[in-house]
Design a protein around this nucleic acid. Structure first.
Lengths: 344, 344
DNA sequence: GCATGGTATGTTAACGCTAACAGATAATCC
DNA sequence: GGATTATCTGTTAGCGTTAACATACCATGC
């Protein structure tokens, strides 16, 4: 504090204060507080009492510098508003729970330059590992991660060349699978609704896989629309209405995420349209929210819980020097959930 | 790395490496990299070139220890799955954007002991300030925060005694306001549906304010139900169904959050019930999602964007030694949004 | 009685950086 | 021309902790 508005200028406590208060050396205090090395019962108690009485909080900055160990894992993801990422975070946290490691998040908003900045920022804290969403990064980011000398796990996607280790699903394949399921169900006039996100490579890959599989069956997307910003549920509604007014012959709508899919679903039901008979619907992600909709939306699980858990495990294993049971590329298989909006 | 599985044991680069590579002292390198003090154009260029070529990333641990400045703001909130908190986070991030400060999140899951642990953990990194949700903490937590010698802002709630500064709304008052609006609209048989969260003090205070205002008007909650876990949308649906089967005379349902409110809304519409004529509904929070529902749910904005922004501003101001324009207690006023589920 | 070995504590020197001060050089003034 | 100032760069001494080693003490064995 610059201004002395608090009565006592609260100089932060150090080991020395505790050491003086308990009559032992700083080193002994340090040992007690970290449960390291042998310390007699009585000294231990003396020290703990003093520390508690003073309200001592160790200084990890100094500790980290001296020990060259920082028990932080940098987790770099595009956003928190996508539902998917908070869930990945939860499973990472859960998996790290009984290790010494702690996740720290950084957000990129899908902007590669911001990712680069965030990575630089986080690496400057010398974390024990990095978990980063996606395989697409600036050259500088890749160089930083390579040079960091710590485990790096790229998550969510496996369509590409990982820097170190990748854990995820193939979004191309996910797109193909959904296309095949739709065609197999007999739908023929397919519309696509998604986010306007040139930088969301996973959405792009799903779209590519989707159109590719359609093409292979001699079919093409007949209409498409992209949005950005605003309430996804509302956008789903509006885009569905707009698309059907424009292309009334469509018999299937593939949404790039569940939220806009839910909006579309609500809209179509209000219009009295028979789902999945007259029009079929599918989304992507398998968000929990879907459980409460009037009809269960067809979707595809992106395996985000497993992804988070495995990524965290890999970091934890490698940090503790163990051989990880996972290889350099862990591909999980998304499963279609047919729900009630896709004929079988 | 314990195991030498990488060819060159990537010893982390230091200022010394850059200094040697560019032929100037470490101090000058440090100055260039931080844009501090006068450095000639040519030296600056030499240093930046060398740093870039080597891929040097400064060590903030050492920097923070030496300068006793850590540009982090600890943000301690209950969870990320509540929608509300990610939004508060965003507005904090946005407000800190053009300062040197960076937010770092810690989660408590509404458990006071976990909050204590998280605070201890975060304070051991010596952040420049703390933003923490709620006014209820363990005595140890309060002591830690008091002794930390840094600005502490408690957010979301103002019903209580802040440690340092509080920014939020009065949830008691919010509950009262909603009760008054409901009564004024002529509803008389009111049911309450909420989360089973003995530790969610804000939900509790809203409930207290709500019942208090009803009591003052000689009215009482006629039925109530609490849930925990699972898809909120689905739970809203199920609880609404259960409650109406049990208490068919109810003419208003007050939900403790918008998500279960949305579930109730969808259910009642499917049952062909006239909203808000036959039954009125209201939630709490004003989440964006509501925008896409078939009918706009009545709700009350918790001012979370402003709260985040103001809290961040207070920390930023105080950190830079400025006199903050805000006092020790900033109470914002939630506004009822009547939507289409509450008669006027 | 002296080596042997554990247990409990202390001492010293980093860790990589920055604050504070101390030069060195060149430019400016009266 | 010497003092004054501005501009640039270097030197030294920590920041608060921990690793690694050193020491002191007591017990045990033969």
């Amino acid at each position: 504090m610059k201004n002395g508005d608090t009565p006592e200028t609260t100089r932060s406590l150090t080991l020395r204060d505790v050491s003086e208060a308990s009559g032992v050396s700083e080193m002994t205090v340090s040992r007690v507080l970290r449960n390291r090395g042998d310390v007699s019962k009585e000294t231990r108690k003396k020290v703990l009492d003093a520390a508690k009485r003073l309200g001592y909080v160790p200084n990890k900055i100094a500790g980290a510098l001296a020990s060259k160990r920082v028990n932080l894992v940098a987790v770099v993801i595009p956003s928190m508003s996508n539902m998917v990422f908070p869930e990945v975070m939860s499973s990472i946290s859960a998996e790290l729970e009984d290790t010494e490691l702690q996740p720290v998040v950084g957000l990129t908003n899908y902007v590669p330059e911001q990712e680069e900045k965030v990575l630089y920022e986080m690496l400057s804290w010398r974390p024990s590992g990095v978990i980063v969403a996606g395989l697409e990064h600036t050259e500088a980011s890749r160089a930083m991660l390579r040079n960091a000398g710590i485990p790096v796990v790229e998550i969510m996607d496996v369509d590409g060349e990982p820097i170190d280790t990748a854990v995820g699903i193939s979004h191309r394949r996910a797109g193909r699978m959904m296309a095949q399921a739709i065609l197999k169900a007999g739908y023929e006039h397919i519309g696509f609704l998604g986010t306007k996100m040139p930088l969301d490579h996973r959405a792009r890959k799903r779209f590519e896989g989707f159109t590719e599989a359609l093409a292979k069956a001699g079919c093409e997307i007949e209409d498409q629309e992209f949005y950005s910003g605003g309430s996804a549920l509302k956008k789903g509604r509006e885009m569905t209405q707009a698309m059907l007014e424009r292309s009334p012959d469509l018999d299937f709508l593939y949404f790039s995420n569940d939220m806009i899919g839910a909006g579309g679903l609500l809209y179509l039901r209000e219009q009295g349209i028979d789902i999945p008979g007259q029009i079929g619907l599918a989304g992507f992600n398998g968000v929990e929210l879907l459980d409460g909709l009037p009809q269960q939306l067809a979707t595809m699980d992106a395996c985000r819980t497993e992804i988070g858990a495995i990524a965290a495990r890999i970091i934890a294993d490698r940090t503790s020097g163990q051989e990880s049971e996972y290889g350099k590329r862990v591909e999980l298989t998304p499963k279609i959930q047919y729900g009630e909006t896709l004929k079988r």
